[in-house]
Design a protein around this nucleic acid. Structure first.
Length: 950
RNA sequence: GCGGACGUGGCGGAAUUGGCAGACGCGCUGGAUUUAGGAUCCAGUGACCUAACGGUCGUGAGGGUUCAAGUCCCUCCGUCCGCACCA
């Protein structure tokens, strides 16, 4: 250490103690070395990044969720997953595996644009600054990424391929017969040859060119739709369902969201609903996430039933067709297309008022399930097909247009909502099942089929009653499944409906009225038909705008139409193209893609970032992501990220990947084979008497367990790190106070990777002490010289402990249990510390110790490795192999229990027989003094345990 | 309301198949070194009883199975998360 630097030392002590200053010096040195030497470069089988040495070694693709380069910079909670994947990747690299680990930036998106609105700084400038800062913070952490593969979604060379994939989706249709997407040209072929007829039965060749376009466009996987969307004036854009919270506000910014009709780009994700659901079984994902995706897709099997009404057939979806005899009224949604026709003249005023009230209601109120149900009678009746009964048709906003058919048959005796509604409006309730004895007992009432005596509807399996006519007898059944089967058959035979499946999942709303996103590769002709721009003309660059701000809107203004910023790029807006029928003028699409687009495929661009011919070379995709065997999904080997992406990103990315799979561009049918959700790091925050947050770092914990700030008592709370709570700790703070290795070790030691835990800055010192002891075991703190000796005799017990540690650390690292790996390394090091307090440590022990800490604390390990005079980088060395012969102890400790309580422990040979073990146990004093006469029973588990029952 | 996960010292957390509860770290207590300590090192540290030897209790609460339960079964309580009128 130079004299000049010593003055900056904040802690005293020997010159070569492993202090923060020394750590900083070591860390900077090796970070430069790794960059210069490409230590973490991964080898591709072909292409620019190919490496002949690849040969026979295994591959591993470790992936972190694509980070957004936030202007706020990182706090200590952000890198938790990054460190976890880094340790795992480093460990596997040391096992000789070709490891892919890279990091890029999901850099399009609203925040940069919102920042631009506030500051006037161009989003690109702002985004680039943020990426640079995040790169710096992550580099300082010592992550072993292949730097050559870092991509950003805002790179023109990246979004060129995002647009290319959009074209693939636009130019594809879903062939239900083959259950896969196919190029749209093949559909055109089917129509032209007459193999396929239009839905209305007309022949395709008889249609006008414009009509033909409409037919084809209606099959595309990306299509324009004029349907109700989530309009958020506060953000000046519309949002996907997934981006709207349960209380009808925007996920970002918490602005009100309104439903209104607008023409928008949609992605036909619903055609993939079954595959997205069923293929979850092929994935190694946490059950909780699979469940969330299953719920989101919401597949529900039931039946469609068509009721006769004066305005024609009214179709409903129900999961309980078996209760059709009990359907005593119907309810349709206020947005139902048949409402007009069903409304009787004398009811129209009331109905209109109700519809208007429902439309004016914010989503918040509309979706409040706890509020009392409301509705009005339309004046029309439908016919119950089973008993011919005329049943009234009501409208009510508890029936949603977005699910099923937007209409229901109400069976008040068997459905809570219908029951409440019938009670409120005095509609008929007829029992069609005899509730069980238990049910009546539970409600402390006498069995009765008079529903007016029931406190709630009966739901479940039970004997059917009042459910038969001349043709159908459900009264013979006592469970829902059998009754459903019978009625499905009846409905089908009568042509009144039949079994069907419906989904909660809706098509994905894909356009945004913003500036900072990928432009669509779409132009419109003079008739307003969309055409994709030829791949050869990609990328369609974002035009430079003087004023890129979206038109400012009042968050409550749900009337004014959105004006996307690109509408003001007047020169860019129109373009002359020859798309096959001569040079013509086209208008560009002025919406941009949502932020999810880039993250739907980025994991493949890491693999082949320089490819200018394809988004990825198929051979490279196959090498890194291809299925491992028949039926294997393929995809990344490990994907680590937060649970907040459970449905949005993970569902969209799976959908795109499947389209690319169907079209033959990738060999894997899932993008992420194994998913792991890291926990969150949260922090304590403190408030004074007025409820104001006070700086958490200056709060003192008193001896009595209370907390004070500036002598005043404050209250503790626990939550996210954030500016408003004044409890942010940044990686930079940690680098300064302890160094990156200590910080990494602390984050990994706090608990299992998937658990959330509180940050405690004062606890970090424990890991610093550990590294200081490791350092001191190998290096003289006064001279900085290595103290390790060659050829010294090694204590057999320490050697055995080292090998035991190797075996156990290796296992822990492979299963992402870094916290226990660290505890075992500390134990080993503590043993070494006490054994070699006064003498130098043998090289035979020092080398494996250095290698074992390398994945966790890469800088100090590299420094020690170099001081040990070893070749190359420790991170490219072979992880030590446990000698299994050394793991077997000849002597083991046998536990002696009396009545299940531990009374003694004796050392025995590991090969001891049950009989010998029993004899030894019965002879020991702890047993004899408790034993009167013969033991009642002796359980022997030699050589570990003997339990004497007296 | 429905679904899911989880409850272990003062704190973060360990604990293959049921077989020594509390590894490791923080904090705390005592000691060493030091002009000094918010540095470093060493030792101790679940609770209770006991002068000590030793003993009793102890994994959210209650019950059960077992020679033996943090782990398996039943009932209840609490916390967190997801969905939320999905027909």
């Amino acid at each position: 250490m130079s004299e000049g630097q010593e003055t900056t030392e904040t802690t005293h002590g020997p010159e070569f103690r492993y202090s923060p200053a020394l750590a900083a010096k070591i860390e900077a040195k090796w970070q430069d070395f790794w960059d210069e030497n490409g230590t973490y470069n991964a080898a591709n089988p072909v292409g620019d990044l190919a490496d002949a040495e690849l040969a026979d070694c295994d591959k591993l693709y470790v992936l972190d969720m694509f980070p957004y380069p936030s202007g706020k910079g990182l706090h200590v909670g952000h890198p938790l997953g990054f460190i976890g994947t880094d340790v795992f990747a480093r460990y596997n690299r040391m096992r000789g595996v070709n490891v892919m680990h890279a990091m890029g930036y999901d850099s399009f998106g609203l925040p940069a644009e919102q920042h631009a609105i506030n500051t006037g700084v161009h989003p690109r400038k702002n985004t680039e600054d943020n990426i640079a800062n995040m790169r710096r913070q992550l580099r300082r952490l010592g992550l072993g990424h292949d730097q050559r593969r870092s991509v950003s979604t805002t790179d023109e060379d990246f979004y060129r391929w995002t647009q290319w994939i959009f074209n693939q989706i636009f130019n594809a249709w879903y062939d239900e017969a083959r259950d896969k997407a196919r190029p749209i040209a093949e559909l055109v072929g089917q129509y032209e040859s007459g193999e396929r007829l239009c839905e209305d039965g007309r022949s395709y060749s008889g249609l006008s060119a414009s009509e033909q376009r409409k037919v084809i466009d209606s099959h595309r996987l990306a299509y324009l739709s004029d349907s109700p969307v989530n309009w958020c004036p506060g953000l000046g854009t519309i949002l996907a369902n997934e981006e709207v919270t349960a209380d009808g506000r925007s996920d970002i910014g918490n602005y009100p969201v309104f439903k209104r009709d607008m023409k928008q780009w949609m992605m036909r994700i619903t055609t993939y609903a079954d595959r997205l659901l069923d293929d979850l079984d092929k994935l190694d994902w946490p059950d909780a996430i699979k469940l969330m995706q299953r719920n989101w897709i919401g597949r529900s099997t039931g039946a469609n039933v068509r009721f006769a009404t004066p305005a024609g057939e009214l179709e409903v979806f129900t999961t309980r067709a078996d209760t059709l005899f009990g359907a005593t009224f119907m309810v349709i949604s206020p947005e139902h297309p048949m409402l007009q026709a069903l409304t009787a003249a004398e009811n129209s005023a009331e109905v209109e008022a109700y519809v208007k009230a429902a439309a004016d209601k914010a989503e918040v109120d509309r979706l409040d399930a706890t509020k009392e149900k409301t509705g009005v009678f339309t004046g029309s009746y439908a016919t119950n097909p089973l008993n011919g009964q005329q049943i009234p048709i009501w409208i009510a906003d508890y029936v949603l247009m977005g699910y099923g058919t937007g209409a229901i048959m109400a069976v008040p005796c068997g459905d809570q909502r219908d029951f409440e509604f019938a009670r409120k409006y005095n509609l008929e309730i007829v029992a069609i099942q005899q509730p069980t004895k238990e049910w009546f007992a539970e409600h402390e009432m006498k069995p009765s089929l008079d529903c007016s005596t029931w406190p709630e509807p009966f739901v479940g399996d039970s004997q059917y009653v009042n459910s038969s006519n001349e043709e159908l007898d459900l009264d013979q059944y006592a469970n829902v499944a059998e009754a459903n089967a019978a009625i499905y058959a009846w409905l089908e035979s009568k042509g009144l409906g039949g079994a069907t499946t419906t989904y909660r999942l809706r098509d994905w709303l894909f356009s945004r009225q913003r500036y900072w996103g990928e432009p669509f590769p779409i132009v419109y002709d003079e008739d307003g038909n969309p055409h994709s721009v030829p791949d050869s003309m990609l990328p369609i660059l974002l035009p430079e705008l003087e004023d890129f701000k979206p038109t400012a809107m009042d968050p409550e203004d749900d009337v004014t139409d959105p004006v996307p910023p690109l509408a003001r790029a007047t020169e860019w807006l129109e373009v002359e193209l020859d798309l096959g029928d001569g040079l013509k003028t086209y208008k560009r699409e002025i919406n941009v893609m949502p932020q999810w687009a880039g993250s739907c495929w980025y994991e493949m661009r890491y693999l082949d970032p320089t490819n200018s011919e394809a988004f990825i070379d198929p051979e490279i995709e196959k090498y890194w992501m291809g299925p491992k065997h028949e039926g294997h999904s393929g995809g990344t080997d490990l994907y680590v990220g937060g649970v907040e992406h459970a449905v949005l990103h993970l569902l969209y990315a799976r959908f795109w990947h499947k389209v690319l799979f169907d079209l033959g561009h990738v060999s894997s049918f899932e993008p992420f084979h194994r998913l792991f959700n890291q926990g969150y790091i949260q922090a304590y925050a403190y408030r004074d008497e007025r409820g104001q947050a006070v700086p958490a770092e200056d709060v003192v914990e008193e001896a009595n367990g209370t907390f004070t700030y500036d002598g005043e008592q404050v209250t503790q709370e626990y939550g996210k790190m954030g500016k408003s709570l004044k409890n942010i700790v940044t990686p930079d703070d940690m680098y300064d106070a302890y160094g990156a290795d200590t910080f990494r070790l602390y984050e990994m030691s706090m608990g299992p990777l998937d658990a959330s835990r509180p940050w405690n800055s004062r606890d970090v010192v424990g890991m610093q002490r550990f590294l200081q002891r490791v350092w001191r075991n190998l290096v003289d703190e006064d001279t900085g010289e290595l103290t390790v000796v060659d050829g010294a005799e090694v204590d057999a017990q320490l050697m055995a402990l080292t090998h035991k540690t190797i075996a156990s650390v290796a296992e822990d690292m492979q299963s992402l249990k870094f916290n226990t790996a660290i505890s075992k390394l500390i134990e080993l090091n503590n043993e070494l510390t006490s054994s070699y307090q006064d003498q130098p440590m043998p090289r035979e022990l020092a080398v494996p110790l250095t290698q074992m800490i390398a994945p966790l604390a890469p800088h100090i390990a590299e420094e020690l490795w170099s001081m040990l005079g070893l070749e190359g980088s420790v991170h490219r060395s072979q992880f030590p192999q446990a000698d299994h012969a050394m793991l077997v102890n000849e002597q083991v400790e046998m536990v002696i229990q009396v009545n299940g309580k531990v009374r003694d422990k004796i050392s025995v040979g590991k090969g001891i027989s049950d009989a010998e073990a029993e004899q030894l146990a019965l002879a020991c004093e702890a047993v004899t003094k408790r034993l009167e006469g013969e033991p009642r029973k002796v359980i022997v588990r030699a050589p570990n345990l003997v339990n004497v029952v007296v």
